[in-house]
């Protein structure tokens, strides 16, 4: 080391460090880097599959036990086996498949449109202060308003058409997506923005390259809630608005069970609605969220 430090004067820059010293420094750094880094280890986690399945089995068992106690008439309080029989019957008739496909198509399409509308809206509201101040409370308010409240208005405007269903879905999902994105943007550490500014980002670049990815966890949480809201309001709309040019969805199936006073159909429809919700969570949101958090190092020690 001693030989080269004397050359620390301007003009002598390049000549300073000899090759071996650079190598020496590199080796030293590599050692320190190795000591300070923790090896990431991942293993197959069967508990993620086994535990929820076990929980479902426990719930079904409790349900069967309560049903077989005979506290109520069997047609009023069917057990899981009776409901399974009803569902099998509906499946043979093709009604469950039709209802699931109809509802899922509407739900996904409505949700997709909500994302397309909600994302730029949320970004705009989060980034432009006067807009945020003006419309923020309104959007938050809309989130509190159950979107079923729009069903009567929608029926008057659109009649018994798919328009009614989509309108209600949009009114449910968009405020959630907007609010999720705003919450995500609000939680961005301030230095993310100052760094972007120092690096010369324009306003649009700041929004798309830094703010949006930084807000992604909040955004995904908003999407998740938006999906839940659209699925719920879709079911509500389908229960209330039946007939006309409306197709036959899971909500319609539920309403049919009520009309027929058939608890098997009612419970079967409820389980189908629940199952779709759980599957979307397990197949779409769960993995996306876990991947997002793991990549940012936010998953360690979490109970997920």
């Amino acid at each position: 080391m001693a030989s080269n430090v004397t050359e620390l004067e301007p003009g002598a820059h390049a000549a300073g460090t000899t090759r071996t010293e650079t190598e020496d420094l590199r080796a030293l750094e590599a050692g320190l880097d190795e000591l300070q880094s923790e090896a990431a280890h991942r293993r197959r986690d069967w508990g993620r599959v086994a535990l929820p399945l076990g929980a479902v089995v426990v719930v079904l068992l409790v349900w069967q036990i309560v049903a077989s106690l005979g506290l109520k008439r069997q047609d009023l309080m069917p057990g899981p086996l009776d409901v399974a029989a009803s569902l099998a019957q509906l499946w043979r008739e093709g009604q469950v498949q039709e209802a699931i496909v109809t509802s899922l198509t509407r739900g996904l399409l409505g949700f997709a449109v909500s994302i397309v509308i909600g994302t730029p809206l949320g970004l705009l509201l989060a980034q432009v202060r006067p807009l945020r101040r003006a419309f923020g409370p309104l959007i938050s308010g809309l989130q509190v308003l159950p979107s079923v409240a729009w069903v009567p208005a929608a029926i008057i405007w659109f009649g018994l058409t798919d328009g009614t269903v989509y309108f209600v879905v949009l009114m449910g999902a968009i405020p959630s997506i907007v609010n999720g994105l705003i919450a995500g943007v609000d939680q961005i550490p301030p230095h993310y923005r100052s760094v972007a500014k120092v690096l010369g980002a324009s306003r649009l670049e700041l929004a798309l390259q830094v703010v949006l990815p930084a807000a992604l966890p909040g955004y995904v949480a908003g999407l998740k809630q938006g999906w839940a809201f659209s699925w719920r309001s879709l079911m509500a709309a389908e229960i209330i608005a039946v007939g006309g040019s409306l197709g036959f969805g899971l909500g319609s199936l539920l309403d049919q069970g009520r009309t027929l006073s058939d608890m098997g159909i009612v419970m079967g429809a409820i389980i189908a609605i629940l199952a779709v919700g759980i599957l979307i969570e397990l197949l779409v949101f769960g993995p996306v969220e876990r991947r997002l958090l793991r990549r940012r190092g936010l998953l360690a020690g979490a109970t997920r």
Partner: peptide, 19 residues
């Protein structure tokens, strides 16, 4: 103040991109 959603290279590349 690195961006946690980008790799080390991604962070440097973003700076270059903004330039």
């Amino acid at each position: 103040a690195l961006y946690p959603w980008l790799t080390a290279r991604g962070n440097v590349e973003l700076a270059l991109k903004l330039r």
